[in-house]
């Protein structure tokens, strides 16, 4: 209980070691010169860096916008609008990510920024939905007793509603991150870069090792982030 960092470090270490192993092995054992060029350290790190940039920028934006709008929609005055938005969001999530990318490509053109924007839009949905649901599902009796004891609506939000909704909000962020990592691999189709570059190049040139490297790194990232966020949540939520 009293561990300073309540994070289980075994799995992350294994995942990172596995990633390094894949990078080092493929860089040193290319099947031919084409593969050697594509899986050079420079090329792989570039793809990884781009992939992370896509994720970090889009996720940061999505968390800020998703949580804030989720909070706003949960306020009594906007509650009915919130219900409507919740349904729209649910429908929005059924649209395949590739379709979102294609749609935005038509409207906004191509490039890294475009890709970030598309990922951002797609990641807002689970965060917004979970923030909204997490807050409005706090037991009414808890809110009522807080109100009856003289807590202001703002204090109720920050001291009661958000802490209680926190696990659900984090679950939304986890979902968003996992989707984000996968979808970021498609950014390559609109010139966004990332690990998708490796996968698509591998497919078009028929080099399995390249496809495998790109896909494996993306998968490892997704598992790693999912695990880390889960552990952070566990460490912060002690009451359940």
């Amino acid at each position: 209980m009293k561990r300073l960092i309540p994070i289980n470090l075994v799995l992350p270490v294994i995942l990172i070691a596995l990633g390094i192993l894949i990078v080092v092995y493929t860089a040193n054992n290319p099947t031919d010169s084409l593969v050697a060029r594509m899986l050079s350290y420079t090329n792989m790190f570039k793809a990884l860096r781009e992939h992370f940039m896509l994720m970090v920028v889009s996720m940061t934006g999505a968390i800020i916008v998703g949580v804030l709008s989720g909070i706003m929609l949960s306020r009594p005055k906007l509650y009915y609008l919130g219900r409507v938005v919740e349904n729209i969001v649910n429908i929005g999530q059924t649209v395949p990510p590739l379709a979102v990318l294609a749609l935005l490509f038509v409207i906004m053109g191509i490039g890294f920024r475009m890709a970030v924007f598309a990922l951002f839009l797609y990641s807002i949905l689970p965060i917004l939905r979970n923030t909204f649901a997490g807050i409005i599902n706090v037991q009414p009796s808890i809110i009522e007793s807080a109100k009856g004891m003289g807590m202001s609506p703002f204090r109720i939000l920050t001291r009661i509603e958000l802490p209680l909704a926190f696990p659900i909000i984090v679950a939304g962020i986890r979902t968003a991150v996992v989707i984000n990592v996968g979808t970021a691999a498609m950014a390559t189709f609109i010139g966004g870069g990332g690990l998708g570059d490796l996968i698509v190049a591998g497919i078009s040139l028929g080099r399995e090792m390249v496809i495998f490297t790109g896909a494996a790194l993306a998968a490892l990232t997704a598992i790693l982030l999912d695990h880390v966020i889960g552990q952070v949540e566990k460490g912060l939520v002690r009451w359940s």
Binding site: Q139, S141, I142, I143, E144, S145, A146, K147, G148, M149, G150, M151, S152, I160, P163, L164, V237, W239, S240
Partner: peptide, 21 residues
Amino acid sequence: PIKLRLDIGYVIQEIGLFPHQ
């Protein structure tokens, strides 16, 4: 109302304890 409520003790049937505290 906030000031009023701070000086009135309030207990409800469901008690409404804050589970995270």
